[in-house]
Structure formats: structure tokens, C-alpha cells
Amino acid sequence: MTIFEVDPDRPDEARAVYQYRWTPQTGPFGIEQGTMDDPGIPVDHSLVGHRRALDGIVVPARPHFGFVGGAPRAAESVDTIPPGYFGGNIDNRRAGSGARIYLPVAVEGALLSIGDGHFSQGDGEINGTGLEMSLTGTFRLRLHKSGTDTVPGVRGRTAPVIGTPEAWVIQSFRFENHLRDLGRSAQTDVYTRSSVDHALRHAFRQGRRFLRDVHGLTEDDARALLSVAADFSVTQVADGNFGVHVAIRRSLFHPPGGSARSAGA
């Protein structure tokens, strides 16, 4: 376990303070926790040893909300950890200040939820967590009705889309809709049946459709551009329904100065 701190005089960076190994702790209900798998357990620091960590290393701020989602079409209570077509626990660091996040409306009123503030997180969230922190955000909501009012970059997508000033970021997961695809045991099976391979395949298909629908590219052109100019990244492998996203730079279609050069490979 690594503990970081943010200095109020340097709010754009975080530094590690110390590390400690988890030792069995007694939770608030008197149950001994042998592993750190239940949030909110007070740690008795007299029971753990401390050591220095990451000396001289600075983690730059990437503030964002990990959870941005509407309610999915489901009749019962839903585990909020696995994300899906409705958004939710996407954990994509690009969902920060200035970004536009496009989500489908699956239920009446959308029932938008936002939370899981992060100071910073790397793609993959490979250790299961980012630098979690309290965040206060200001949001502007707009309803795009299906049809002519739909944003071209979002039309036809079956997963969340993040628009930044630099790129379209098309989010995909192992299961587009695990609540539907995995049946009655979906909320447990999603944790054991996820794979990055399938998430990448879905991201490729979403990116290809984006290029064909929005920019009128042929199948061959879309495949070529995805291979030489799009960036596929693992969003997270921490939330059950593994995520992969593809970033397609806006400048590919609107180059500065409008000039172009020929190149061959």
C-alpha cells in the first residue's frame, strides 16, 4: 500500500510519503480482514511497518471523475464497479476538465451519476487503483435526441464516447452489455470472464465504424488509418469488465495549414 500526499503549495503534483504491507485488521463490525478487499477499514498503524517509497519521483495531476454514467436497463440493483454501454466506472483519465462525455439514455430521466474522483491515474489502472481523491466538478448537461440532433461522432456508437479538444476517444469493453450478455449470474461472471483481447476487438470495430460513418472512409481506408494513426490503449483491468479505448486525433482530418505530404512504406 502506497500513501501519497499533495502539497497545497504545489497542487499539480503528488509525491509518495510511505508504503506499508497489509496486516490483518479488524473492521468496524468486528470482522478480521486478512486481505485489503473491503473499502473503509480503519488501519491501526501500530500494527504495520512503514518504509520510504518512490524517492524523488513526482506524479503529475490528471484530475478526472472515474465514474460518469446513466442507469442501465436493469430491473434489479446493479453492481457499480463494472462499466458498460451506459458508462459508469469507466476510469478513463480523459474524462476531465473540458471533456465532453456522450452516453446513451437507457431509462427515463437518465439518472446520471458522477463520482470516483481521481487526482491521477495511468492507462490500465494496473494495480487496481488510481490516486483517489475528493473532487468537486461543474457540469453542463445537454440531451441530444436521436436523429438530426445527434452529434455525428456519436451516432451509431454502442459505447461511451469522450470528446476532447485533441481527439475522439471511443470507449469499449469486453462486454458491451454484461447484464444482458451473461444472463442471471452476470454480476459475478463478469469478473471471471473478461479479457483484454475481446475488449480490443470491440474497440477496433467501434473505431472502424466511426471512420466509415463520420468521415466516409472505405473499409480499407479505415483499417489503414486505425493501424498507422490511431492509438489503442487499455483503459483499465480493475473493474471486472475490462476496458480498451481508441483515440482518433481530430488533426488527422483538419491538419494545421491544410497541407499534406506523400509518404510510403
Rank of each mutant, 00 (worst) to 15 (best):
T158I: 10
P165V: 08
L131S: 02
F139K: 05
T188H: 06
F232T: 09
G70V: 15
Y85W: 07
V234G: 05
E76D: 13
V246G: 00
V246K: 00
S46Y: 07
R201Y: 05
T80W: 09
A61L: 01
Y85Q: 07
D197E: 13
P165R: 03
I248N: 03
G183H: 03
V58Q: 01
A186D: 10
G84N: 02
V6A: 06
V169C: 14
S233H: 06
F204I: 11
F119V: 01
H198D: 09
R52F: 11
Q171S: 09
V6W: 06
S251W: 06
D213N: 10
F253A: 13
D116C: 07
R208E: 12
S146A: 15
F175C: 12
A106D: 11
E32V: 15
V154T: 07
V244P: 03
P104K: 07
Q187T: 12
S251G: 00
K145C: 06
D37E: 07
P42H: 12
T235F: 03
K145F: 07
V246D: 00
I170H: 03
T2Y: 01
H178E: 00
R174S: 10
H202F: 04
P60V: 13
G96C: 06
P72Y: 09
P63K: 08
R62Y: 08
G147W: 07
R15E: 03
F29P: 00
F204G: 02
E176D: 09
W22S: 12
R140D: 09
R174V: 13
L135N: 12
A199V: 09
H254A: 15
E76G: 13
S97L: 14
H202R: 14
T26K: 09
H198F: 08
D9P: 00
F173N: 07
H215I: 11
R184K: 10
A95N: 06
T129N: 08
D181C: 02
D37Y: 00
V48T: 12
G216P: 00
L135A: 12
A224V: 05
A230N: 01
R205V: 13
V237F: 03
F29W: 11
A224L: 11
D221I: 02
M133F: 10
R142W: 05
D181Q: 11
R100W: 06
G137S: 11
P28Y: 04
V190N: 01
G87M: 06
V68K: 01
D44H: 10
I81W: 05
G109Q: 05
V161W: 00
Y20L: 11
H64D: 01
P39C: 13
T192N: 05
S134P: 02
S262T: 11
T2M: 07
